[in-house]
């Protein structure tokens, strides 16, 4: 089980991080549009399409990565007071009841929607530049599959946690500034009171 969890974590992280770099492309691409518009008086016809395609791809493909790091927002004011075991039991039920049906619908219906779009090589309606969007619609399916795999790993996490009363944390990763500082402060405190 641990093996699969590690596999899913790294799969999600790999895709999430790879697509995260779109933000740099997006910053430069949009910056380029501003430059050619003001410096050369010739705006591009594609900037708008390209920016929403990058934004949409980025956040959809980051969904599973965010899930693996516990990044999706929860109303956890009660949840966090519970024992890990209790948390895991509740989570397990809700993953089966709430998570998989939605994600499965995303994959299957997304497939129907995207394949239709491939069928007529659909382009974006926003500009006459004819930017293709069938690949973009396929992102829904890809994001759904990643979430599905990560969801299985989360279920396994719950099962492990019910047994051991301890969550299997994801491996060390990039953290928010405040989390790094908080962790450092906790370390320091531990050192101060051995």
């Amino acid at each position: 089980m641990t093996g699969f969890i590690r596999f899913a974590d790294s799969l999600s992280a790999w895709f999430g991080k790879a697509f995260a770099w779109l933000i740099v492309l997006m910053a430069f691409g949009t910056g380029y549009e501003v430059f050619v518009r003001y410096a050369l008086n010739s705006p591009t016809p594609w900037a708008l399409d390209v920016s929403f395609i990058m934004y949409g791809t980025l956040f959809m493909m980051g969904g599973a990565y965010t899930l693996s790091r516990g990044g999706h927002v929860r109303g956890d004011f009660l949840y966090r007071l519970w024992q890990p075991k209790t948390q895991a039991k509740v989570d397990l039920v809700l993953y089966l009841l709430f998570f998989f049906p939605g994600v499965t619908a995303l994959i299957l219906s997304g497939w129907k929607y995207a394949s239709r779009s491939w069928g007529y090589a659909e382009v974006s309606i926003n500009s006459p530049a004819g930017i293709p969007i069938y690949q973009f619609k396929t992102v829904m399916v890809a994001a759904g599959i990643l979430l599905f795999i990560q969801g299985i790993a989360q279920v396994m996490r719950c099962i492990l946690c019910i047994r051991t009363n301890q969550w299997l944390e994801p491996e060390e990763d990039i953290r928010e500034t405040e989390d790094i500082l908080l962790a450092r402060a906790t370390e320091a405190e531990k050192d101060a009171h051995p």
């Binding site: 010739s42 705006p43 591009t44 016809p45 926003n126 500009s127 006459p128 530049a129």
Partner: peptide, 15 residues
């Protein structure tokens, strides 16, 4: 019409 005005040197958005 968007293709048309793009050909005339405008940058066109459809909204």
């Amino acid at each position: 019409a968007a293709d048309l005005l793009q050909a005339m040197g405008m940058s066109v958005a459809q909204l």
